[in-house]
Computed example of a mutant assay.
Amino acid sequence: MTTQRELQSRWWEESGRLRWELRGRLDALSAGGARAELADAVLPGRGAVVLDLTGLDFLDSAGLAVLVQVLRRGQADGVPVRMAMPVAADAARVLDLTQFDQVFDRALPGDVPGGLPGDLSEGGGA
């Protein structure tokens, strides 16, 4: 039996960056809520938007569409968008196969508390 996790979302500002942490599943069931949160977010005036997907387990085409909206919104508001890749292999594979990992700038080590997975300079895992 597989338990499907819902999407958990949290926004906060830290060191001039607006961070959006998404955990769980970004799919057809949760994408509408994520789009509504993005619509309410104030991006202008931020140094960057950090899309923290390190806790994302799964995403589908509806989830990818939300990521495109984040990128377009950042471009329209003149705010760079950086992405921290998912740790979960399935979610990371979707981003790799669709080349979304090439479209977004990668998050910097200081963008994610504890550093990025695989980064030893900020205390991240390897």
Rank of each mutant, 00 (worst) to 15 (best):
F58Y: 15
D60E: 05
P44E: 13
D60S: 09
L71T: 00
D57P: 08
V66P: 01
A41H: 03
A34K: 08
D57I: 03
A48E: 03
R25P: 05
R35I: 00
S61W: 06
G32F: 09
L64N: 10
G45C: 07
R46G: 02
S61I: 11
A65V: 02
L38Y: 00
G74M: 12
A41P: 09
G33C: 02
D40N: 13
G24R: 01
V50Y: 02
R72I: 00
G32W: 10
D52G: 00
D77K: 14
L43C: 05
A65G: 15
E37F: 02
L26H: 12
L56Q: 03
A48Q: 07
L43H: 04
A34P: 11
L29F: 13
D60A: 10
L59N: 11
V68H: 07
L38C: 00
L64I: 14
R35H: 12
G33T: 04
G33L: 04
L56V: 12
A65I: 04
T54Q: 15
R46F: 01
G45S: 11
A76V: 07
D40Q: 15
Q69T: 05
R23T: 11
A31I: 01
S30Q: 13
G47M: 01
A76E: 15
V66N: 05
A41W: 00
L64V: 13
D40A: 15
A31K: 09
